[in-house]
């Protein structure tokens, strides 16, 4: 009994900011525990609704993210600064190695440039012969990544462009090196991007010069798997992988990466690598718009 009373007094005194001798109800009392249990139950209900992909909840989440976008944008500024500082320090240590690598790459690119020039001339000559229609150039909107950490639940990113910038679900997203994913949810000011590496991602692809068709399947790692290859078609390590545009969801020919063999299975080493860029571009590729333009 004595110990119990002392315990009560001590706990009351421990309250930060309350008078030492005032008797306040003990936390962990019936009401507090019921409230805690009730809130935990509510959280569980949210979790179940989220799992069942409730449309109302999705809409609510998008609206809440729209509201929080300015705060998230503000928070991404120091994160971006830290990332750039780390990159700078890292590049400083690797400067010699990078210099010799760049010299080699420069020599290679000169040869490639000469080849491209020749091919472009050939291409325009052949187009003129065939009298083929010009492809509609793709428009794009660039946005800043305001949130994007791979967690336990998939690989997503949040960018600060949404409906008001003409973004809809299903648009392709690229960074400075290549294709990284597509938009899945859009709010007025924000859009959620599902990355290629996410377990639920499925992208139709073409591989190598032969244009072998397949599907890039996200594995949760940085190497998506290649599956559903056409029968009797062979692919090799180092072959380039592009979007095939099959299904009309994504534009054709966006660079994804190169084929890499891991444990006797074909995977893709992404050109975008780890998403370290601060900005991404969303291609405004809409089949219905294209059809209207061509009419």
């Amino acid at each position: 009994m004595f110990i119990k009373n002392r315990h009560k007094i001590r706990r009351t005194n421990l309250r930060f900011g309350s008078a030492p001798n005032r008797q306040t109800p003990l936390k962990g009392s019936g009401l507090s525990s019921t409230l805690l249990f009730g809130l935990a139950l509510l959280a569980l209900v949210f979790l179940v609704l989220d799992k069942t992909e409730n449309r109302q909840l999705k809409k609510l989440k998008a609206q809440a993210l729209d509201l929080a976008a300015p705060a998230l944008e503000l928070a991404s500024v120091p994160a971006g600064y830290i990332q750039r500082s780390f990159d700078r320090v890292q590049s400083f240590y690797e400067i010699n190695r990078k210099f010799s690598e760049l010299q080699k790459e420069n020599k290679r690119l000169r040869r490639v440039e000469w080849n491209i020039d020749k091919l472009e001339r050939n291409n325009s000559r052949l187009k003129a012969l065939l009298n083929s229609a010009e492809e509609t150039p793709l428009k794009f909107v660039s946005g800043r990544i305001i949130s994007g950490n791979p967690g336990l639940f998939g690989h997503h990113m949040l960018v600060n462009v949404g409906h008001r910038n003409g973004i809809h679900a299903g648009f392709a997203v690229i960074n400075s090196t290549g294709f990284i994913g597509r938009t899945v949810d859009t709010g007025t000011r924000t859009s959620r991007i599902l990355l290629l590496t996410d377990k639920t991602s499925r992208i139709p692809i073409t591989i190598g010069k032969q244009g072998v068709r397949g599907v890039a399947i996200g594995t949760g790692s940085i190497f998506p798997k290649i599956d559903f290859l056409a029968h009797n078609r062979r692919i090799f390590e180092g072959d380039h992988v592009y979007t095939s545009g099959d299904g009309g969801e994504l534009p054709r020919g966006l660079s994804i990466g190169v084929v890499k063999k891991i444990d006797n299975q074909f995977h893709i080493a992404l050109v975008a690598g780890k998403q370290t860029n601060e900005y991404v571009s969303i291609l405004l590729f809409d089949q219905s718009n294209l059809a209207e333009n061509q009419r």
């Binding site: 706990r11 421990l14 309250r15 930060f16 900011g17 309350s18 306040t24 936390k27 507090s32 409230l35 805690l36 809130l39 935990a40 509510l42 959280a43 569980l44 209900v45 949210f46 979790l47 179940v48 609704l49 989220d50 799992k51 909840l57 989440k61 809440a64 993210l65 929080a68 998230l72 949130s147 950490n149 967690g151 336990l152 639940f153 998939g154 997503h156 949040l158 959620r192």
Partner: peptide, 29 residues
């Protein structure tokens, strides 16, 4: 103790779920 009411923790968890794009209710729970 006493300075951290459960509704505050609940709201913080919801914010964490929303901002990290985790399932709503996971970090809250």
């Amino acid at each position: 103790p006493g300075l951290l009411p459960s509704p505050l923790v609940f709201c913080s968890g919801l914010a964490c779920d929303l901002f990290t794009r985790s399932p709503l209710g996971y970090w809250t729970l």
